[in-house]
C-alpha cells in the first residue's frame, strides 16, 4: 500500500476494509439519486424517445418543449400560491411555536403539562378525519379557495412547539435572571432575550416546516376550487396517470418536466440549509 494512502487512511481514522466499503457505499448513494437523474433526463427528451427499449440516461436529442408545455398551464401562479402559503404558514407556525415552546419550558402555570400532552397526542390522530368538517367551516365563512384557507390550518403544527420547548429547556437560567433583575417583564424577556438566542432552532424549524407546507397535498387539493388558487403540488398532480387526466395526451416527458419544476425549490432549500434540516430533526426528536 503506498505511503500517501496509509497516511490518508490514518488521518481519516479508516482501515483497509474501508477501501472496500467506500465504493460500495458511494454506489448505493448514487443508486439513491438515480430516480432524480431519470426524472430530469426524461424531462429533456422528445416524447418519441421516452418509451424505448434501450435506456438512454443522457438524452440523445435534447428539447425544452416539455418545459414550454408545462408553462402553458398556470404553473407560475401555482408557484406563487405555494410560496405565499408555505412562507406565511411557516412564519406564523414558527413564531407562535417559539412563544408556546418558551412558555411550556420556562414558565409555570396550571394546565401547562396537560397542554403539552394534548399537543403531542394530536400527532396520533389521523388528520384526514378532520378534513371534511374543516372544509365545510371554510366554505361557510366564505373562505374556501382563499389564502386564509391554505394558511390557517397549517399554523397549528405541533412540531414547532416541540422543537422550541426542547431548546428552551436547556436555556441557561442566568440570562433570564439577569434580565429579570433589570426589571424586564415576561414578554420583554421572551422577545428581547430568549427569541434572539433561539436562531438555531428557529432556522431548523423553519426549513422543515416550510418543506412540509410546500409539499402539503390533501388539504390544498380539497380546499382550492379553481385553477388560480391551486398550489404547485395540486396543480402538478393532474399530470399523474392515476389521479390526473393530462398524461393521456402529454406523456411522461411533460410530466417529468412538471415534477422537476415542483422539486427544485425544496431540493435547493435542502442543499443549502442541509445542516439546519439535520439539526432540526435531531433536536426535535432526540434530546428528551
Amino acid at each position: 500500500m503506498p505511503q500517501w494512502l496509509e497516511r490518508e487512511l490514518e488521518e481519516r481514522r479508516l482501515n483497509r476494509l474501508d477501501l472496500l466499503i467506500w465504493p460500495v457505499g458511494l454506489a448505493v448513494a448514487t443508486l439513491w439519486a438515480l430516480p432524480f437523474v431519470w426524472m430530469v433526463s426524461t424531462s429533456f427528451k422528445f416524447p418519441a424517445d421516452v418509451m424505448t427499449q434501450d435506456i438512454e440516461w443522457l438524452p440523445s436529442r435534447v428539447t425544452f418543449d416539455n418545459y414550454i408545455k408545462v408553462f402553458e398551464y398556470p404553473v407560475v401562479r401555482w408557484g406563487i400560491n405555494s410560496l405565499i402559503q408555505a412562507t406565511l404558514a411557516t412564519f406564523f407556525c414558527v413564531l407562535f411555536g417559539a412563544m408556546a415552546g418558551y412558555a411550556l419550558a420556562r414558565m409555570h402555570f396550571p394546565g401547562r403539562n396537560l397542554l403539552f400532552v394534548i399537543f403531542l397526542a394530536s400527532l396520533m390522530i389521523p388528520v384526514e378525519v378532520s378534513v371534511i368538517p374543516l372544509l365545510l367551516a371554510f366554505v361557510k365563512v366564505g373562505w374556501a379557495s382563499s389564502y386564509q384557507a391554505l394558511i390557517l390550518p397549517a399554523i397549528g403544527n405541533v412540531f414547532s412547539v416541540y422543537i422550541f420547548r426542547q431548546f428552551f429547556l436547556t436555556f441557561p437560567a442566568e440570562l433570564e435572571d439577569a434580565a429579570k433583575m433589570d426589571g424586564a417583564g415576561p414578554f420583554n424577556l421572551f422577545f428581547r432575550i430568549a427569541l434572539p438566542l433561539a436562531r438555531a432552532p428557529a432556522i431548523a424549524a423553519s426549513v422543515i416546516i416550510f418543506t412540509l407546507n410546500w409539499n402539503s397535498f390533501l388539504w390544498p387539493l380539497l380546499v382550492t376550487f379553481d385553477e388560480s388558487m391551486k398550489t404547485l403540488p395540486v396543480g402538478v398532480a393532474a399530470f399523474t396517470p392515476v389521479v390526473g387526466t393530462r398524461t393521456q395526451i402529454e406523456g411522461y416527458s411533460v410530466a417529468m418536466a412538471a415534477v422537476t419544476i415542483l422539486s427544485i425549490p425544496s431540493l435547493l432549500l435542502f442543499c443549502f440549509l442541509q445542516r439546519y434540516f439535520i439539526q432540526g430533526i435531531s433536536q426535535g426528536s432526540i434530546k428528551q
Binding site: 371534511i132 365545510l136 366554505v139 374556501a144 380539497l222 376550487f225
Partner: peptide, 21 residues
C-alpha cells in the same frame, strides 16, 4: 367558469350547497 377536479366535484358541490354558496 371554474374547473374542479372530477374526483372531488360532488364533495365540493355538496359543501357549497350546504353552506348556501
Amino acid at each position: 367558469m371554474e374547473v374542479v377536479p372530477e374526483e372531488q366535484y360532488v364533495t365540493k358541490v355538496l359543501a357549497a350547497v350546504a353552506t348556501g354558496k
